[in-house]
């Protein structure tokens, strides 16, 4: 990752140890994941032990240490979505993409994430691709949703 960008982020957070979560969030916003060398660099610059950084980076689910796909499919597995059949939607997404939840397809096109609740319970079950919400999703609709993003990327 661009060192200058990292420096700017560190600067914005005034090199505070307590801001490590915010710093990593900002890095991930740019890079889509947390590259190892960036974390090592941050550890050096902040003089914060790498074990602490690794602990935080693996504790919080928002962080990923491996690159993610171009499109992230978030299957909401909150209670309302679960009752409305979220597990079946997840099964269907996994079957269609031949990967499991929290994994990325070999072509780096899609990553599947499960999320606990997006607060859109009235629209359950919800599937979110990147920023687009799909409400009242049934397993039969999954293929159509995914193919839209596949063809969009080809364009």
């Amino acid at each position: 990752m661009d060192i200058e960008k990292v420096d700017r982020i560190l600067e914005e957070h005034e090199y505070r140890h307590s801001a490590i979560i915010g710093i990593m969030q900002d890095v991930q916003d740019i890079e889509n994941y947390l590259p190892e060398e960036t974390l090592r660099y941050i550890s050096d610059k902040l003089e914060l032990n790498l074990t602490k950084i690794f602990d935080v980076a693996t504790f919080y689910k928002a962080f990923s240490l491996v690159p993610r796909g171009r499109h992230t499919i978030k299957v909401c597995c909150g209670t309302a979505c679960h009752l409305a059949g979220a597990a079946r939607n997840l099964d269907q997404v996994e079957r269609t993409l031949h990967i499991k939840a929290e994994e990325t397809t070999d072509d780096r096109m899609f990553s599947i994430e499960t999320v606990n609740c997006l607060g859109a319970c009235a629209l359950a079950p919800v599937v979110v691709v990147d920023e687009d919400y799909y409400d009242a999703v049934k397993p039969g609709k999954i293929e159509k949703i995914l193919s839209y993003y596949r063809s969009e990327s080809e364009r």
């Binding site: 190892e36 974390l39 032990n49 790498l50 074990t51 602490k52 950084i53 690794f54 602990d55 693996t58 504790f59 240490l65």
Partner: peptide, 19 residues
């Protein structure tokens, strides 16, 4: 020194060195 730490959470919590 802090050479070893903890990583992950819940049932996946483990003792680990960075990366």
């Amino acid at each position: 020194v802090g050479a070893i730490g903890l990583a992950n959470r819940g049932v996946d919590r483990e003792v680990a060195t960075p990366f």
